[in-house]
Design a protein around this nucleic acid. Structure first.
Lengths: 166, 166
DNA sequence: AAAGATTGACCCCTCAATCTTA
DNA sequence: TAAGATTGAGGGGTCAATCTTT
């Protein structure tokens, strides 16, 4: 009783299935391992760390909320909740940006900069232990390239903002 | 005022950082895209789908809870909550397994088998659109291999169960 | 006592509705 | 009125405590 539509519902080959399942397992396991270290050593989760890191990279240590959401692959809502927590901790502050239509921006505070500096070493150690030191340089490069390829395809011609802090 | 310990807190090279950040973005983006399709088309999330799929692969369509937790990279608690939901939906049932010390197992029901068959095609289409069809066969193979390498290292000699349903 | 499994409280994210400003 | 941003309710996951079986 097989349904005939092969082109309508193309199955994965054995090799494709195996590689996909490995990726699924990775995507389930990695965030848990990253979150666990950050939570116990720094009192923040992986997403909050990511937000601080993207702000630290930004021109004035600041980015409009929507640009920060795009940079962290998050919904506006998820980011807003996360910035609530980071602001409560004193690591980030919101301010009204008078350029480009009076939008809201988030800026890394001095306390946030300090906290990030304290947090980076342990996080980097965990990233090395879990990923970087476990692969050959070629494997890591291939992993990065495949990731960028997938991300680029999913963005499908949607431009990344690239603005500065305000 | 830099802390001197270079070997204690080794930084990532520019290339390592770039590849790691690409992987982070992938790991943030992929689950959202997978969950979105499954949630709207099948009323389940990616993790619940994964549980059903692992049961469908098992010898008697059944696995002890701890083995299923290992197979899905989840904590016992997360799995227990998920099986609660799947049982409520009628797709899975729990039963006491009299072998190997009277443990609890989960089994795919007929309804669950049917639901999975209905759900696979749309899910596979999404997996192709997001990942498989976006990479060359070589890239996909490299991605799978790197994932397995990372997973194997994190399991660090801990053996995978491999038991049957009961 | 120890391993397998569950429970419930708390935290985070999603989703849809709302507020605000140009 | 449309885009940027926030809000709160509801659902899922984590963690620690508990229950159960050998």
């Amino acid at each position: 009783m097989t349904t005939g539509g092969d082109t309508d519902a193309p199955r994965l080959s054995d090799a494709e299935l195996s590689d996909w399942q490995s990726l699924v397992s990775l995507v389930l396991m990695l965030p848990a391992a990253i979150d666990s270290q950050l939570k116990s050593d720094a009192g923040m989760n992986g997403f909050e760390y990511h937000v601080l890191a993207r702000l630290a990279d930004a021109p004035q240590l600041a980015l409009p909320m929507s640009d920060l959401a795009a940079a962290t692959q998050s919904s506006p809502s998820r980011l807003s909740h996360a910035v609530d927590r980071l602001e409560r901790a004193g690591w980030v502050e919101r301010f009204a940006c008078t350029e480009a239509g009076r939008r809201t921006s988030a800026r890394l505070t001095d306390a946030g900069t300090g906290k990030l500096h304290d947090t980076v070493p342990g996080h980097v150690r965990q990233v090395r232990r879990l990923v970087v030191d476990v692969l050959t340089p070629q494997q890591l490069a291939a992993l990065g390239e495949a990731s960028r390829q997938i991300l680029a395809a999913s963005r499908s011609a949607r431009p990344v903002p690239g603005s500065d802090g305000c």
